[in-house]
């Protein structure tokens, strides 16, 4: 089975792109499942179910969804292996610009949209910079010039990625993406021993663990202080 990790900022078009791409993958006779990771809320599982795609959903609640992803991806992968899928696609909300759910040796796709502003590629960290494929959506509502400028900015922060333009509404470009996703050489039968592409920060301070009181004496763990000058 292949695992493909898809990540990207909220509402960038991840679900739309995945759904259209799965249409093409199904035509190639592949069996596909999706795992959706989000923070507080998502209806994406309903969209996948409606399209007849087996889906598992996980909400991270108070945790960074990417941390939650790593803690659960092995179980989800085992579920997909047991059910003999050819591809498991994970969709995770890239809420935290610092983390990314990408794993070494596992295909990593980042979905961002043309509307997010030309400085966005600079702001997104490893989620964009270490992806193998960057999908740019919503090209239908900007000009050719804006598409070219945006793609060139993406290329500057991740020169080795394949950059693709996909229209999440019509699916234009999704067939092309589907040809790049499944690769027999990348089949796995377990995630054991695999590593994240990029370490996630150890962001555990007392507030992460539920502390609500303000004041230095309540602050434990990984706490950083601003330099406030007089």
């Amino acid at each position: 089975m292949n695992l493909v990790t898809v990540s990207g900022p909220p509402s960038s078009g991840k679900t739309s792109v995945i759904l259209k791409t799965i249409d093409s993958l199904k035509k190639q006779g592949l069996k596909i499942a999706v795992a959706k990771f989000d923070c507080l809320y998502t209806d994406d599982d309903i969209l996948y179910e409606k399209a007849g795609i087996p889906v598992k959903k996980g909400l991270s609640g108070a945790l960074c969804p990417d941390h939650y992803f790593v803690s659960n991806v092995e179980e989800i992968t085992n579920w997909a292996l047991k059910n003999k899928f050819d591809i498991l696609i994970s969709e995770s909300a890239g809420l935290c610009n610092r983390c990314s759910p990408y794993i070494k040796g596992i295909k990593a796709v980042c979905v961002i949209d043309n509307l997010s502003g030309i400085n966005t590629p600079k702001k997104i960290g490893p989620m964009l910079k270490t992806a193998d494929i960057v999908v740019i959506t919503k090209g239908d509502i900007v000009s050719q010039a804006e598409r070219e400028v945006f793609a060139s900015r993406v290329n500057t922060v991740n020169p080795s990625a394949i950059i693709m333009h996909i229209n999440g509404l019509t699916g234009q470009g999704s067939f092309e993406l589907s040809t790049l996703l499944y690769d027999e050489a990348l089949n796995i039968d377990s995630l054991k021993g695999m590593e994240l592409r990029f370490p996630m920060p150890a962001a555990l301070c007392s507030y992460c663990l539920g502390e609500t009181r303000i004041g230095e004496s309540y602050q434990m763990g990984n706490v950083r202080k601003m330099k406030v000058e007089d």
Binding site: N114, L115, G117, I118, G139, D140, I141, V142, S143, Q144, A145, E146, R147, E148, V149, A151, S152, V154, N155, I163
Partner: peptide, 29 residues
């Protein structure tokens, strides 16, 4: 390659989302 695309597309929907003057916009491109 992102620099060599065989095809450019004139969108049906002709909006600009950037907030720039005509000159700065074309210059950016």
């Amino acid at each position: 390659s992102s620099a060599d695309k065989l095809v450019a597309q004139l969108s049906q929907n002709m909006n600009f989302v950037m907030d720039l003057s005509v000159y700065d916009f074309v210059e950016l491109h």
